[in-house]
Design a protein around this nucleic acid. Structure first.
Lengths: 220, 220
DNA sequence: TATTGCAAACTGTGATCACAGAATATAGAT
DNA sequence: ATCTATATTCTGTGATCACAGTTTGCAATA
């Protein structure tokens, strides 16, 4: 059962917000699969709440195109076309590239240690072929970089992109053919950050985002 | 009274979506002022619907930070700090700059005629000091440019930025000291598009977005 | 056995009510 | 006249119900 709503733990906000956050996380790490249906009443029972908070959470995710919602039809996780996926990764490259340039100015040694740890988690998850752990570590790594900008508007917009690409990436990496040439990318980013190399960090971050498109091309 | 919900006109979607779209437009053109309160029940009466669709629209706008919502307190239009405004215009410059570069590759002569018309509307609205017409024409101009990318994810993200900066810009331009040096920017963008100058269009578009920050600095 | 049609189950949407906390206005005291 | 305490009004939130369109499954027919 879901622990998200345990009321003894101090959680911010109302029920809708908590359910929204939980579903958002599940989308990012690929716990929800493309074309999967989400029913208000079913989720309400799982979360042990009424339909009210769930419908608001689902509507909110649908408004961000993290879910597809049509009248009188069940909400479902989008199954992206190649063009849609490419569009999302393009925006991610633009935003994360700009963020990385700023991050290179502000990064501290403590930040680099944290990034290195996330990278260890990433490779550990890859060894175990654990898709959700892998995606979560990847998200944590990237998020730490663009959070260094201190620009909350920028952060939430990039977050929204990870929510939308999560389900598709989870499918993609489990069928990945050649991950080797990409696995060292994060190390290169850390190295560029260490040198406070703005242009280099930006270029590497843009490349890393573009990797998502590569995955897609391999799968056809 | 609001005509948005006239049911004889074929409108897409449900009540929540229509109310959301109407409020979104009002935010973009500055019909809603910073720190203004929005009550679910009051709006429900204005739109002649129950509270249900309104609360979903407001919640959705709050989730995009287009409105501020706290438990048991009225929703209200955000009153941006200088840092928050600068952050928003930074993201706008990044996204619109990247979009403009692509637009310069795809722009047609028909597009340029449309852009020129929006620019005429813009200057006409300025002569009359009509803030909402001015902001709407400005939005139309920019939107036409970044819609040329065909990237819907990119478009909706930029749209969200106009929603958030609208109320603040509406206040800003009415108190604007020196608009002259900025009024020709759009003409320069059109000229760069005519020449299919990717780098130039991008640079000019980034500058134009940065103008929003300038406005703020003038006002203190 | 395959196909068609109908009924039952399931879907989101909108309306309405109860509730608790926040804001406001009013009346009382100093 | 000013400050304070209290009552009233207003706020979003959650739950529950009715409704109509969609999907699904089962049974009857060819």
């Amino acid at each position: 059962m879901n622990q998200v709503l345990a009321s003894d733990i101090a959680v911010p906000g109302n029920l809708s917000t908590r359910i929204y956050a939980d579903l958002q996380r599940k989308l990012i790490v690929g716990d929800l699969r493309p074309a999967e249906n989400l029913s208000i009443r079913t989720l309400a029972e799982e979360y042990q709440v009424s339909a009210m908070p769930v419908r608001e959470a689902l509507r909110q995710l649908a408004s961000e195109d993290a879910l597809i919602g049509a009248a009188k039809k069940a909400y479902r996780v989008p199954d992206l076309t190649s063009e849609q996926a490419a569009d999302l990764f393009f925006v991610r490259a633009v935003l994360e590239g700009a963020a990385a340039e700023i991050a290179a100015e502000r990064v501290t040694d403590a930040d680099i240690k944290i990034l290195a740890k996330h990278n260890v988690d990433l490779e550990s998850a890859w060894e175990k072929r654990h898709a959700s752990d892998f995606l979560f570590a990847n998200y944590q790594f990237h998020r730490h970089v663009y959070s260094l900008t201190g620009n909350s508007a920028l952060q939430s917009m990039i977050d929204a992109l990870y929510v939308r690409t999560g389900p598709w990436l989870a499918f993609g990496i489990t069928n990945l053919v050649r991950p080797d040439k990409w696995m060292g990318e994060h190390d290169n980013i850390i190295a560029a950050l260490k040198q406070r190399d703005k242009a280099g960090t930006r270029r590497l971050m843009e490349e890393d985002a573009r990797w998502g498109v590569e995955v897609f091309r391999e799968l056809g």
